[in-house]
Amino acid sequence: MRWPTGWRQRTAVMGVINITPDSFSDGGRFLQRDRAVAEAAFQLQQGADVLDLGAQSTKPGAEEVGAEEELKRLLPPLREIRSRFPEALISVDTFLAPVAEAALAAGADWVNDVSGGRRDSAMLHLVASAACPVVLMHSRGNSRTMDQLTDYDDVVQQVRRGLLERTEEALAAGIPTTAIIWDPGLGFAKTHEQNLALLKGLEQLTQDGFPLLIGPSRKRFIGAVLDEPRPRARIWGTAAVACRCAQAGAAVLRVHDVGPIRQTLSMAAALW
C-alpha cells in the first residue's frame, strides 16, 4: 500500500481534479486530457500529496453517467498522469466497482468511494482483492436524494455510527483495518449547520483510530457562512476550515487550491 510522505505525522493534501463537465466549482475545466494532466503537474508542483481524479460529478442533482462514460473520461488522463509522474500517489473518486477496477489496473493507488461501498456491492470485495487503501465516506441516498435525507438527532455520533457500520462491512469483505480511511462527508446529506457541527466535533470521529479525510473545499456551507455565492471565491473560508482540521489531527484535506491550503496547513502545524 502506498501512503503520502510523513503519513499520519502531518495533515496531507489531496488535490481535486474533476474530469467532468458539471462539477460544482470547476465543471468542464479539466474535461480535456491535456488540461487534466497540466492540472496534475501544477498540483504536484504546489505540494499535493495525493491526486484525486473523478469522472462522475457527485454534487446535489448531478446526473449519473454510468461506468462506460466515466471510464471514457477517466482513463486517458489517468494513464498519462501515471506515465509522466510515476511517483505520484493517485486516488480514483468513484462508487462503481468496474471503474475502480479499471483505474487500479491503469495505475491508481487508492479508491475514494463517496458511498462507502453502499452503491456497488462488488466495491469492497474489489478493494480487498486489490489490497489498496480505501476512503469510506459517510453519505445517504444519491446526488438526487441526499438533500432530503438530513434528519439527524446527533449528527456527529450518527455519522460516526454510520462509518463504523461501513467499516464492519469492509472488514467482512476482507479489507484490513490499516487500509481504511474515514470521511464524514461534508455536504453529503448534511445541512450547513450540520456540516459546522461535524467540524466542531471532529475529535469524536478521530477517537476510533482511523485516519480522517475531510473535504470542505469551496462547499456550500462555507458560502452560507460567508454570504459568498461564488465557489472559487471561498478559498479563505476553506483555509479556516483547514486550520480546524489540522487542530483536530485530520490525516488528509481534499482541496482544489493546493498551494494556498498547503501553506495554511504548514502554518497550522506550527501552531498545533
Rank of each mutant, 00 (worst) to 15 (best):
residue 241 V to Y: 05
residue 129 S to L: 02
residue 86 P to G: 09
residue 122 A to R: 15
residue 129 S to G: 07
residue 157 Q to H: 10
residue 76 P to G: 12
residue 105 A to G: 04
residue 19 I to P: 00
residue 255 V to K: 02
residue 235 I to Y: 05
residue 24 F to W: 15
residue 174 G to M: 10
residue 153 D to F: 14
residue 265 L to M: 11
residue 6 G to C: 13
residue 92 V to M: 03
residue 239 A to Y: 13
residue 4 P to M: 07
residue 66 G to N: 01
residue 69 E to S: 05
residue 219 K to N: 02
residue 154 D to R: 14
residue 116 G to Y: 02
residue 201 G to S: 13
residue 200 K to L: 07
residue 206 T to I: 15
residue 129 S to Y: 01
residue 168 E to S: 15
residue 259 G to F: 04
residue 84 R to L: 15
residue 137 M to W: 04
residue 226 L to A: 12
residue 15 G to L: 08
residue 43 Q to N: 10
residue 73 R to S: 09
residue 126 L to R: 00
residue 239 A to V: 06
residue 216 P to V: 10
residue 168 E to H: 08
residue 197 A to G: 06
residue 269 A to R: 15
residue 123 M to A: 06
residue 119 R to A: 13
residue 163 L to P: 04
residue 74 L to N: 03
residue 164 L to F: 13
residue 201 G to M: 14
residue 29 R to N: 12
residue 40 A to S: 01
residue 18 N to M: 11
residue 99 V to N: 01
residue 9 Q to N: 15
residue 250 A to L: 06
residue 79 R to C: 15
residue 244 R to A: 15
residue 236 W to I: 07
residue 208 D to Y: 05
residue 72 K to C: 06
residue 106 A to H: 03
residue 196 L to D: 11
residue 140 R to V: 09
residue 15 G to V: 06
residue 117 G to D: 12
residue 12 A to T: 02
residue 136 L to G: 03
residue 234 R to A: 03
residue 172 A to I: 08
residue 261 I to K: 05
residue 141 G to K: 09
residue 209 G to N: 09
residue 154 D to M: 14
residue 258 V to P: 01
residue 54 G to E: 11
residue 22 D to E: 15
residue 244 R to F: 10
residue 233 A to S: 13
residue 1 M to G: 12
residue 145 T to V: 06
